[in-house]
Nucleic acid binder design. Structure first.
Length: 828
RNA sequence: GCCGGGAUGGCGGAAUUGGUAGACGCACGGGACUCAAAAUCCCGCGGUGGUGACACCAUGGGGGUUCGAUUCCCCCUCCCGGCACCA
């Protein structure tokens, strides 16, 4: 509701601003959740997915979103995913897709590959079995070939939040450093490492390699203890966060390398903090200047040699080498010929020395890895390959696309159903016609979401992935998505767009011109734990809070049985924690406009939002008051008032009250228009509330109780103008009410065809303005000055004011700060 | 652990990016209307002191820059998002 209300508000606002707006909708429908639901309910994921699409489509319609349903698509339909297969084959031809082994989580009981999400504390979520790692062949997309462009093009994305660009830049992780070769002791080769801190090379006291490194494998061949340790490492975590937080562990390989400059003999260790996937899978360890090396060296009593000194202060005077690592750049010390050099000079000198010996060179390293897209799962796009014993790996020919996914299978949690369905995997080799087997892996669902926005432009094209219409509409002017997509989805989409561009399919370089990263909606999590330790989660809608007489919360109970439930704090809304909210109840009780208004009012779009329906009544009350006010205005004959700007100006000029009211309304409108530019919809709603408050205050009749409103004939043109502003300001947020009342009040046929309201500069002008008066920066009062007063005049009036005089008495004025239109500060 | 973001009344949040901290709304308290309740309307509502005009304190904690800091800088705490197979 939050995500699509933001989109609808922006769409309707831009439509009123005169733009031609396309607001499409589709279903990213492949993936794990559908398989899990299918498993739980014993129905094929296709049926579950279709039912959900129908339910959600109905709900989106009831919320009144201005969606062009003729463009609707679902990524799980062959008309869509055939083009995933088609582009995959084009990429395979250009070597942008390749095959290599990759590591997966393996559940030994269910005999199945697990997603990271399905691994809980190192065990399979269904079986509880200790998860193993397995290496299997997979297909990769060569996103690293685009690393440079994906990084540099971030600068062109002016409409993206800075934080997203920073996260992407760090993810790509371009670093300039030095590749250093440490010759093996026996001269049989070299151990290559990459470092960004070549200045610390003279402080290297050992080298460390990943468990999967060839050197480790070789060393383990006649060292059973080491082999066992490596096995243990390989069984460990796959998730980077776990690898980075697990306790450091290592073992000496018994192998030694030679320091390329000093000739010193350094031991080589296997360490669980070295990643095979980054750099060379090996590091030179400088415990004195790297936190992780320091921790490891301390733990295994390896030497620590300090070779860099702080330039700022005497860090090394107060902290001994065995106490802490100094990881900042500084000046080299105790480094022989390389001593006394600043960071860059030291790196240059050491790189040059290495290069002269043929044992190193400067190079660029990326953190970004190629995109593994193979999934050993059913509910996804089939990878279009065929394996023939005679011909090998044979791509599916274009005229045999799409490879259609059977839609009647029910996964049971053990392996991939496709691999157990001969009618799917048995096929003929396209080359030799012999018996062959289809690939049963499917594609990562990020493939589906990497280009769906382009397909909205031409959803009916049965002969091509995209056509000319894509050129007309693309790029996406305003993309809206959760901040959780900041890296993966948004990076893959950018990569995919560039690939399509290089194939000549589109002319754009980037998919999304402006990006709004909406904050997540959180809600409280309630549960009970049974004696056996099994946890049951309860939906917050079924829980009642227990309050004391002061309204302070003292507990919570289940409405059904009145017995207490525990709170697990606030978390992202999720099915597993049963803390989501079905918006239907809100829509049923208060209507779509209230649901939309409240959602927009609760917080600015980019901010995380803790769900609470405590304010819904306030939003509903406001709309009822507005409706009532409009009805009273209509009853007073307001709908018959002609739209006559000069008559309005005359009548307003004749009344100071009307002048003040009109000024107030136009000032609120000016601020609201500014807030809209920043997409700050919560204060736009607040502005609409202020307008109604001002109108009610001005026209509330005597006796108050039954909210009788009194409009004089003279006031009708002004109220008409105010309501015309109000209804247009609210139209993007509460389209139903605005559309109806706009018509009822005779303001026009369709409020969405009306121009966006702009404040009248004449109404904004004031003869006299109030300035804040400060003395020594403290608020002491205010003074009224003519709005066209110059600095000297303001200064003089401020000093002459009784308030200032009171404080000045007996002291001298040092200076007077005047901030035009805001304040005067007298410094004593 | 690393990268990014956040913290303001009882609650959601505002403060035109260095210029009146708490707009707007919720909750709460008092009052009006009513036989009564609901709905509606009016008033109050950060803390401490004072009868009072007023004074002082206060934007997660500690320091700094400035005439002036929620806003800028340094250090710290806690929370949220991401970490490549949830999407």
């Amino acid at each position: 509701v939050r995500n699509y209300t933001i989109g609808d508000v922006l769409s309707r606002y831009h439509r009123m601003k005169g733009f031609q707006v396309m607001q499409p909708m589709g279903w990213d429908a492949f993936g794990l959740p559908a398989e899990n639901a299918a498993m739980a309910n014993g129905v094929p994921p296709a049926k579950w997915t279709d039912d959900n699409i129908a339910y959600m489509r109905k709900q989106l319609k009831s919320l009144g979103f201005a969606i062009d349903w003729s463009r609707e698509l679902a990524t799980c339909k062959p008309e869509y995913y055939r083009w995933n297969q088609w582009l995959f084959l084009r990429m395979l031809e250009k070597d942008l897709v390749y095959k290599k082994t990759g590591v997966v989580n393996w559940d030994p009981i269910d005999q199945t590959v697990l997603a990271n999400e399905q691994v809980i504390d190192g065990r399979g979520w269904r079986t509880g079995a200790l998860v193993e790692k397995r290496e299997i062949p997979m297909y990769y997309m060569r996103i690293t070939a685009y690393a440079d462009e994906l990084l540099s093009a971030l600068d062109s994305l002016a409409g993206w939040p800075e934080r997203v660009k920073v996260m992407q830049a760090n993810w790509i992780g371009r670093s300039e450093g030095v590749e250093v070769s440490f010759p093996y002791e026996d001269g049989s080769g070299v151990l290559k490492v990459f470092t960004t801190r070549a200045d610390t090379l003279m402080g290297a006291t050992y080298c460390a390699v990943a468990a999967e490194h060839p050197l480790a494998t070789r060393a383990a061949a006649n060292n059973p203890q080491l082999a066992a340790f490596i096995e243990q490492c390989k069984r460990g975590a796959v998730i980077e966060a776990e690898i980075a937080t697990q306790p450091k562990a290592g073992m000496a390989t018994g192998q030694f390398v030679v320091h390329p400059l000093s000739g010193e003999k350094l031991p080589v260790w296997v360490a669980n903090y070295v990643l095979m996937g980054y750099g060379e899978g090996a590091v030179m360890a400088v415990p004195a200047h790297d936190e992780r090396d320091f921790e490891f060296a301390t733990q295994y009593r390896l030497p620590i040699k300090r070779v860099v000194q702080s330039t700022r202060g005497a860090y090394e005077d107060t902290v001994a080498p065995w106490q802490d690592a100094y990881a900042e750049p500084g000046v080299t010390i105790d480094s022989g010929a390389f001593s006394g050099l600043a960071f860059e000079a030291a790196v240059d000198a050491i790189a040059a020395a290495l290069e002269a010996k043929g044992l190193g060179k400067k190079r660029v390293q990326y953190r970004l890895r190629d995109w593994g897209i193979s999934r050993q799962r059913y509910w996804g796009t089939p990878i279009p390959l065929i394996y023939c014993e005679r011909c090998g790996d044979v791509p599916v020919p274009d005229d045999q696309l799409p490879v259609v996914l059977p839609d009647n299978l029910v996964p049971d949690g053990t392996g991939n159903p496709l691999a157990k369905t001969p009618s799917f995997y048995q096929t003929a080799c396209p080359t030799c016609g012999g018996t062959a087997r289809r690939e049963t892996d499917t594609m990562d669902t990020f493939v589906d979401s990497s280009w769906y926005y382009m397909r909205y432009c031409c959803p009916d094209d049965a002969t091509a992935m995209v056509d000319d219409r894509v050129g007309y509409w693309m790029t996406v002017d305003q993309y809206i998505g959760g901040i959780e997509h900041a890296i993966l989805h948004l990076l893959y989409s950018r990569f995919w767009t560039k690939v399509m561009r290089d194939f000549g399919l589109v002319q754009i370089d980037e998919p999304f011109t402006n990006l709004l990263t909406q904050g997540m909606v959180l809600n409280e999590i309630f549960y009970r734990k049974s004696d056996s330790g099994r946890i049951t989660y309860f939906n917050p809608a079924d829980v009642e809070l227990i309050l004391d007489e002061r309204g302070q919360r003292i507990g919570a109970k289940l409405k059904l049985d009145g017995k207490p439930v525990e709170s697990d704090g606030i978390g992202t809304m999720s099915k597993s924690k049963n803390n989501g909210i079905d918006p239907q109840a809100l829509i049923d009780e208060h209507g779509a406009d209230t649901a939309r208004l409240f959602t927009m009012f609760a917080a600015p779009p980019e901010q995380t939002l803790e769900w609470s329906d405590a304010g819904v009544e306030g939003a509903f009350r406001f709309l009822k008051r507005l409706w009532h006010f409009c009805a009273e205005f209509q009853r007073a004959g307001g709908a018959q008032t002609a739209n006559d700007p000069s008559a309005l100006a005359r009548q307003v000029a004749a009344s100071p009250d009307q002048t003040a009211l009109r000024h107030e309304i136009h000032a609120i409108l000016k601020q609201a228009n500014y807030d809209l530019l920043k997409f700050q919809f919560n204060t736009v709603v607040s502005a609409a509330m202020k307008i109604l408050n001002a109108l009610e205050k001005a026209y509330r009749g005597a006796g108050g109780v039954s909210a009788v409103l009194a409009f004089s004939q003279e006031s009708l043109p002004l109220v008409r103008e105010a309501l015309a502003i109000q209804l247009r300001l609210l139209a993007p947020i509460t389209p139903h009410l605005s559309f109806h009342v706009w018509r009822e009040l005779g303001l026009g046929n369709d409020v969405f065809d009306a121009p966006w309201p702009e404040p009248d500069e004449n109404a904004l002008k004031l003869d006299e303005i109030e300035l804040v008066l400060q003395v020594n920066g403290k608020l002491r009062g205010s003074i009224k000055v003519p709005s066209d007063a110059v600095r000297a005049q303001i200064e003089q009036m401020a000093l002459a004011s009784p308030i200032a005089q009171k404080y000045i008495e007996g002291q001298s004025v040092k200076k007077v700060v005047v901030v035009p239109g805001r304040l005067v500060n007298v410094v004593l």
